[in-house]
């Protein structure tokens, strides 16, 4: 037989662990989600300009493609933070 206070303490610890895991998951989600939005906003402007420049001069396609994906690094930082949080 387990005493009632001990059982309550075990339940509390389990709840706390679950809550911490939940917060970590939430943080990881936000790290990827918000950086994704940030990268999207940045790419919107660069992408529009890139399409405009390519429409006028097809030779710049390779260069503007490179410039357009530069904001992707923000998402990679977010992903790294998310992975560090979870594992």
């Amino acid at each position: 037989m387990v005493d009632v206070p001990v059982a309550a303490a075990i339940t509390d610890v389990a709840l706390m662990n679950a809550s911490q895991m939940g917060m970590k998951a939430l943080g990881a989600g936000m790290a990827v989600g918000l950086t994704g939005i940030g990268a999207g906003v940045a790419e919107m402007a660069i992408g529009s300009a890139a399409v405009g420049a390519t429409a006028e001069n097809k030779d710049v396609f390779g260069l503007v493609l490179l410039l357009t994906v530069i904001p992707e690094t923000i998402v990679i930082f977010g992903l790294v933070v998310a992975l560090l949080l979870i594992f």
């Binding site: 402007a45 529009s48 300009a49 405009g52 006028e56």
Partner: peptide, 23 residues
């Protein structure tokens, strides 16, 4: 800032700049 700069404006203004450079 995002709201005030509409993506098609960036597109067309870039095209105008490229065309201007070809004058």
């Amino acid at each position: 800032a995002v709201k005030s700069v509409f993506a098609p404006y960036i597109y067309v203004c870039t095209r105008m700049r490229v065309r201007k450079s070809k004058l």
